[in-house]
């Protein structure tokens, strides 16, 4: 079970968190201006890398804040956590 470092509460069990999928997929500024294909890309397409992946988590059973984490999908190690709106940090 992951030990996830909430940026506010510190490390907590994975069971306290909700997963939110890939981070930095912004809601389009004007969805009405998008083609069906562009909208479908936003709706349905996500990356699935082996290795470092920026993803969203919510500390649902704790402070209830959303944040981003860079997790290595191969090793499950979390290299960084940061708050929404902050740029993805450079991780080794």
């Amino acid at each position: 079970m992951l030990l996830i470092p909430c940026p506010w509460c510190g490390p907590r069990d994975e069971t306290e968190f909700h997963y939110g999928g890939q981070a930095h997929v912004a809601y389009p500024a004007d969805p009405g201006a998008l083609t069906d294909e562009e909208w479908a890309r936003y709706l349905f397409f996500r990356d699935n890398p082996e290795g470092a992946f920026a993803e969203r988590w919510s500390h649902a059973a704790g402070c209830r804040r959303w944040f981003n984490a860079v997790r290595d999908t191969a090793t499950n190690r979390i290299h960084a956590v940061y708050r929404p709106g902050e740029p993805r940090p450079v991780t080794g």
Partner: peptide
């Protein structure tokens, strides 16, 4: 203090 889970309750 902390919000967490106890048994199956928040």
């Amino acid at each position: 203090c902390a919000r967490s889970t106890l048994a199956r309750a928040d």
